[in-house]
C-alpha cells in the first residue's frame, strides 16, 4: 500500500492528529502522555514494592495507582500503532546506541524528562497540544521553560558532539 511506502508529510500528519485530538478533548480531555506514564510508574512500583508503596505519600495522595486510567492507553496505543506502521513498511529492526556517551546522554535525558514532568504536572504533549490551545497560563510558562531547556540542551549536545 502506498501509505506504507512513502514518508507522510508531517504537516498533514499533525493536522490529522489535531482533528482527532479535538474529538478526544470533547470526549475525555486533550492528548497527554505524562499522566499515563506516571500511572504506569506507580503500577510498576506497586508490582515491585507491594504494600510498601503506601508508605510514600505521593502514591497515596497525588497518583494512587490504578490500571483503568485512560491516559495509560494512549501511550500503549502509540506503541502499537508505531509497531504496526514500522512492520507494514518493513522499517522495524533493532537499533542500538553505539557509543557509551550516547547511552549516558539517553540515561540523563530520560531521568530529566521524568523529573521535569512530575515537577510541572505536565509533559511536552500537554504543553503544545493541550494547555496552549486552551490558552492556559501554564501553557505559556511551560513553552518558555521548554524553549529555554531545549536551547541549553542543544548547547550541551553540541559540546558533547564536538568534544
Amino acid at each position: 500500500m502506498e501509505f506504507f511506502r512513502k514518508t507522510l508529510d508531517p504537516v498533514f500528519a499533525l493536522a490529522a492528529i489535531a482533528v482527532l485530538d479535538i474529538f478526544l478533548f470533547l470526549l475525555l480531555g486533550a492528548w497527554t502522555v505524562g499522566g499515563g506514564e506516571t500511572m504506569m510508574t506507580g503500577l510498576i512500583a506497586q508490582a515491585v514494592l507491594g504494600d510498601d508503596l503506601q508508605r510514600i505519600p505521593f502514591w497515596n495522595i497525588v497518583f494512587p495507582p490504578h490500571g483503568d486510567y485512560w491516559k495509560i492507553y494512549i501511550s500503549l496505543g502509540m506503541l502499537f500503532g508505531a509497531f504496526v506502521g514500522a512492520t507494514m513498511s518493513k522499517e522495524f529492526y533493532l537499533r542500538m546506541p553505539r557509543r557509551a556517551s550516547e547511552w549516558l546522554m539517553i540515561t540523563v535525558g530520560g531521568l530529566l524528562m521524568g523529573i521535569g514532568i512530575r515537577m510541572a504536572y505536565i509533559c511536552n504533549v500537554s504543553t503544545f497540544f493541550g494547555l496552549l490551545p486552551e490558552m492556559n497560563l501554564g501553557g505559556y510558562l511551560a513553552i518558555s521553560g521548554i524553549l529555554a531547556g531545549a536551547w541549553v540542551g542543544s548547547l550541551v549536545y553540541k559540546k558533547i558532539l564536538e568534544g
Partner: peptide, 8 residues
Amino acid sequence: GLFLFGIG
C-alpha cells in the same frame, strides 16, 4: 519542570 524536560 519543562526547563528540565527540555534539556532532557
